[in-house]
Simulated scan of single mutants.
Amino acid sequence: MSEHRLTAEFWLDSLRREGAAFRAAVTPETLAAPVPSCPEWNVEQLVAHVGEVYRFHAAHLVRGVSTPPDEDEPAAPTGPAVIEWWDESFRTIVAALESTDPAAPAWNWSIQEPVAKFWFRRMAHETAVHRWDAELAAGAALTEPIETRLAVDGVDEALDTFLPAGHRAGPENLRGVVTLRSTDADAHWAVRLRGAGMSLLDTGTVFDDPPHAQTAMSGTASDLILALWSRVPLSVLTVEGNPELPKALLIG
């Protein structure tokens, strides 16, 4: 795991910044454009998805309980109206987080503690990755990397939350150790793969004893998290060792 410990206020600031950048990438003229990193969607569908996520989580977050919410999700309008609807959705999630104590009870779907702090983090990362999607749809040259501290925490989230909760897109029959290292931050991770299971390791022990690392992968923090989310190919990273093992860390 990384040694970075971020605060709810950092994630909220990141959400505000990434949300503004997402909105800047979306115009009525681009709604029909395909999203290369999410081939099943066009920009209109991407905007609708993000707005639906905001409204769903804003609604259950303010309940102050850790019991699961209703599964019904709000439906987005179609056509250009979806942009104004997204604007309101974004204001709603920001207001919900601003008015909620990060330590208050709040349901989540993971192995993490059921408190609101989870959603400050999750909404920041949800927005950052989809901001990158929106910018890619607007033109590949317009994509900006995810800010380094947020990207490092995104790798943390992928490894301590998504993969342990079973959100895996890669093979589940691989065994070995994968180490990850950020080239633009003092952050590194180690994961032991046990087929369908996995565990995070004490990175100090692993890096002091290199033979245990069957695959080592490195790149900027932004490229690491975008690769784990299959936004960029693993080939953008430097991979040494068994090239199949990193595929088991892909998130779905």
Rank of each mutant, 00 (worst) to 15 (best):
S2K: 04
S2Y: 11
E3V: 14
A8Y: 08
W11Y: 15
L15Y: 11
A24F: 06
A24P: 08
A25M: 07
L31R: 05
L31W: 02
A32W: 00
P34H: 03
V35S: 12
C38H: 13
C38R: 14
P39V: 14
E40A: 09
N42C: 10
E44R: 15
E44D: 08
V47M: 04
A48Q: 10
A48M: 02
H49C: 10
V50E: 00
V50H: 03
Y54R: 12
R55N: 11
A58D: 01
A59R: 14
A59H: 10
H60T: 01
L61D: 02
G64E: 04
P68V: 15
D72Y: 09
E73F: 07
P74C: 07
P74F: 04
A75V: 03
P77W: 09
T78V: 15
P80E: 11
A81Q: 10
V82F: 03
I83L: 12
S89H: 07
V94C: 15
V94T: 13
V94K: 12
A95G: 13
L97P: 03
L97S: 08
E98K: 12
T100A: 10
D101S: 12
A104I: 12
A104C: 07
A106F: 07
S110W: 01
I111F: 06
P114A: 00
K117L: 03
F118H: 09
W119L: 02
R121P: 09
R121K: 13
R121G: 11
M123C: 05
T127M: 12
A128P: 10
R131L: 02
W132N: 03
W132I: 05
L136Q: 10
A138F: 11
E144D: 02
E144K: 11
P145S: 07
I146G: 03
E147H: 01
E147R: 04
T148F: 13
R149A: 14
V155I: 14
E157F: 06
A158H: 02
D160L: 15
A165Q: 02
G166I: 11
R168I: 15
N173S: 12
R175S: 10
R175T: 00
V177S: 03
R181K: 03
R181T: 04
T183E: 00
D184T: 14
A190W: 05
V191C: 06
V191N: 04
R194Q: 02
R194N: 07
G195H: 07
A196C: 06
L200Q: 08
G204P: 09
G204N: 14
D209R: 06
P210H: 02
P210V: 00
A213Q: 00
A213F: 03
A216E: 05
T220F: 03
L224W: 14
I225S: 12
L228N: 10
S235K: 10
S235D: 09
V236W: 01
T238H: 00
T238Y: 00
V239D: 02
E240C: 07
N242P: 11
P246D: 07
K247R: 15
K247G: 13
K247W: 06
A248Y: 04
L249T: 02
I251C: 00
